[in-house]
Computed example of a mutant assay.
Amino acid sequence: MQYARFGGPEVLEIVEREDPQPGPGQVRLAVRTASVNPIDWKLRSGGMASSDAPEKPVIGGIDLAATVEALGEGVTAFGVGDEVLGHAVGGAYAERALADAARLVAKPAGVSWEIAGSLAVVVTTAYRGLALLGLGEGDDTAGKVLVISGASGGVGVVATQVAAARGVTVIGTASERHQDVVKGLGATPVVYGDGLADRVRGLTAHVDAAFDTAGKGALGDLVALTGSADRVITIADPEAGTYGVTFSAGADGEVEGSLADFVAGLAAGRYRAPEVVVYPLEQAGQAQEDNRTGAVSGKLVLTTA
């Protein structure tokens, strides 16, 4: 599933191509599922480009779950037939894809393909956000209070559970209908929207940090609650600069370590995965549009089967 020009979901098209060949340190994967993330439709729309079309056709998608099909030179961590999940190289919306072996982890047998394909981006983003706020593995988290805006979304679900497991007191914002979901993740739920700061102050005398995963206009309240823009990060609000808040993007940090940690916790029953909604690859355009508009609740995943 690729696009050769920027635009709406109609620019996506299914094409046939030769199977890609893995280079040194890479593997070729038989893709089972691929995740839909906001960056996919943002790039496809051209909103982040300075021309009308990419230099060459682009295959969408970053993270996936797949079976190893061929090994590049020097790969010893995996063998042909191994089931893995992680980050693709050159696009995941395809029946065959490439990945750097170092950016993959083993898929536990008890984790479904649909769940496995939904994890890499949300997990690494959540762990990165916590680390930037001083709530990472090894940090002193005793007595810390964290507000997560959008706790019932993909990144929020992961960040809430991991922070709570580290001893952080988490207050999670969500809609009325998702309050029980947030509570089940180990957080105290509050409704987002006007009056958020007052509702949080009714629960705690202080807030140490805030993580905005939703981009629903909460930054003013979050800065007020923490007392400093330096204690707030967002991955979703383009108005971050207006408030002096850091906009965190990318996948820097110990990506695979965080993914392996969460997957192990998931397999052991310590963590819950975000709910997934599955579309066939041919409906990638609709899935991206549903992700953009928020028409469907859950983590959207494409399947090649």
Score class of each variant (00 low, 15 high):
T204K: 04
A205C: 00
G60T: 12
A273H: 11
A174R: 11
G220W: 15
L185H: 05
G79Q: 08
V155R: 13
I39Y: 07
T67I: 09
V181Y: 12
A65Y: 07
D198Y: 06
A229Y: 06
Y3K: 09
E10R: 15
G46K: 12
G72T: 06
D252I: 12
D82N: 06
V123H: 04
G138R: 13
G253S: 11
K216E: 15
D194N: 12
V207E: 13
H206R: 15
L146E: 06
T173E: 06
A209W: 02
A120C: 05
A187C: 08
A236R: 09
L225V: 14
A70E: 15
Y93A: 08
K144C: 08
V223M: 10
I39W: 03
V27Y: 01
G184L: 02
G23A: 05
H178L: 02
G79C: 04
L219W: 07
D221R: 01
V31N: 01
G298D: 03
A236W: 02
I235D: 02
R292M: 14
T303I: 12
G154L: 00
E95T: 15
V123G: 01
G244A: 05
V276A: 03
A165Y: 07
A4W: 02
E16L: 06
S149L: 11
T234K: 08
V84E: 00
G193T: 12
E256I: 14
D221V: 07
G167A: 09
G244H: 10
D261T: 15
A109I: 12
E13Y: 01
D261C: 04
G23C: 10
K144Q: 13
G74R: 00
A236F: 06
V145G: 00
L132C: 13
V223F: 02
S228P: 07
G79V: 04
G129A: 13
S51P: 08
D261R: 14
L185Q: 11
V170C: 13
D52S: 15
G227E: 00
F78T: 10
V158G: 05
F78C: 05
E83A: 11
G167F: 09
E73W: 03
D290I: 07
M1S: 05
L185M: 07
R103L: 09
A284N: 11
G215S: 09
S112W: 05
G215T: 15
V170W: 04
L203F: 13
A97F: 03
D52Q: 14
A77Q: 11
V158M: 01
A34P: 09
P24W: 03
A120G: 15
E95P: 06
T67A: 04
L12D: 02
D221W: 13
I59P: 01
V123D: 07
V84L: 03
P9H: 08
I148L: 14
A305E: 14
